[in-house]
Design a protein around this nucleic acid. Structure first.
Lengths: 285, 285
DNA sequence: ATTTTTAAATCGGTTTTTACGATTGATTTA
DNA sequence: TAAATCAATCGTAAAAACCGATTTAAAAAT
């Protein structure tokens, strides 16, 4: 039993005329006769009464047509659904993102949802390594994070922009106006740092280790919003990537030195199918 | 799109292994690859991610599989319906049942077989979840079990009767005559329990956890007949649903408290065609 | 009553599709 | 590093779908 046969049967049932049905199906009358016959042999019961040259539907034909119709319909519906998926009318998207790029993500999300209101979006915050793991197990469609040292051959990297590391200070700070600052100078300031799980802080710590500098870390906290609130008080300062601090009401001072640029990157699985929705979302980043 | 391709796809989706799927479908692996590819080209979206040699379902694949399954199911149901029409006196019936309802089933089976001696009946014992899985994969026509908490929209439930939970003791037990007993009292008795895979025991364990009671379980066993033999010795007692213990030569004492009723239920697939034989069998339950 | 027309079934041959085995390429496991 | 595993691909063989022509038989027209 094949959908083709069911389609032929339904058309024949509709018109009760094999020749005309064959015409509308763009096949020959002989083909239609053969295929109907084959179907009847498989289900072991005639679908049509052949009274002379006139055909009528049998009881079995009537009962069977309901199933044939539904089978064909469901297949067609599946096709339609796939078309919808291609047109981004349905679907879902799972995005992994590090806290540092939260602003970037939310800005894009607002625009994307406006344009594609029917796509369900799931946002997963986490550390880079955790998110990459989830990407590899296809839980996520793509990950938004800073580029790490080692490339993975299974992953595709798409750089968005570079953002400098900056010292974040209260607007009232007496160094708020400065155009740049050295790492060494920062060592004398009271600091509040993000939790060491974050890639930004790992990046910084690696740098400091290399230069044998010791920061004066008074607070360590795993929530960036709260961290920024702390910095606003003027008591502590922190180090973050520039892009994390936009529009927050704080002053930022670029840190001197090379290697002070971090690359915001979209990471996806190289060989997996990239959803249309994922592509579309990335255009808003 | 043809049913053949949908069937191939569903098997590949089930096993997530083209080679094995091809084996089970009795076709070559190359054929399967080709047909899947052809289907993907028609719907214009990949159904599987090919990450190296590993295969995972895409979002589109998951969405599409629902339609594919229904399309194939409807066609199969049509075929079954025709077979039923043809010969009401032959056919086969696959029934899933939990051990607790063994008596109910065997009684019905005896009557049914007398009336319809030519219908082959296959009985599958198992846990509720296992049987529901098999029902969903259309291996079983219906499942006979106790009603669980969560309803599934794809399933149809038909309640048969309620049966109380009872303490099962030897006829010689000094508490054999009692008209009821509390859970608390039972905690002091030496108990033999069914394997924790059985829904009855999960039901009981949930209750005990809620009431923070600790039963004195000395034996755990995954065969109900043997369990009942043990109880006959008078050394151990057990808890079962009343209906499991009828006509066994043991005393039962209803357990006090509400929520002590379990509903014996016939579960079948909501949208699938129900065989005449299945209907007939259920009349004897 | 006979002829004509109409429509389904059947037959032989052609084209298309499906399937297979062998091989390749890539990945995972030992 | 070698062996095993698995999906993709290629060329070919088998199966099927399809077509046109013809046959058969009933209805319609004469």
């Amino acid at each position: 039993m094949e959908l083709r046969q069911l389609r032929y049967f339904l058309k024949a049932k509709e018109l009760l005329n094999f020749t005309e049905a064959a015409n509308q199906l763009n096949i020959s009358q002989s083909t239609l006769s053969q295929q109907i016959k084959q179907l009847e042999e498989e289900i072991n019961v005639p679908l049509f009464n052949r009274i002379g040259k006139r055909i009528t539907l049998t009881e079995a034909g009537l009962l069977f047509s309901e199933f044939a119709f539904q089978s064909v319909s469901r297949a067609n519906d599946g096709l339609i659904m796939m078309k919808d998926l291609n047109n981004l009318n349905v679907g879902s998207l799972s995005i992994g993102v590090t806290y540092a790029l939260r602003n970037l993500l939310t800005r894009a999300l607002i625009l994307f949802s406006e344009k594609f209101p029917d796509i369900k979006v799931k946002i997963v915050f986490g550390t880079s390594t955790e998110l990459i793991d989830r990407l590899n197990s296809t839980e996520l469609d793509f990950v938004l994070t800073f580029r790490e040292q080692a490339d993975d051959v299974h992953l595709r990297y798409r750089s968005l922009f570079s953002s400098p590391m900056t010292l974040v200070v209260s607007k009232n700070s007496n160094i708020a106006g400065r155009s740049s600052i050295s790492l060494k100078e920062i060592m004398d300031l009271p600091l509040a740092f993000p939790d060491s799980g974050y890639s930004t802080i790992q990046f910084i710590n690696n740098l400091l280790k290399l230069k044998k500098l010791k920061p004066n870390v008074l607070v360590e906290i795993n929530d960036i919003s709260t961290l920024l609130e702390l910095v606003k008080t003027g008591v502590w300062n922190t180090i973050l990537t520039q892009v994390s601090v936009d529009d927050i009401g704080l002053s930022t001072i670029p840190i001197q030195g090379k290697n002070m640029l971090r690359e915001a990157t979209v990471i996806s699985l190289k060989d997996a199918y990239q959803k249309k929705a994922a592509e579309a979302f990335q255009n808003y980043l």
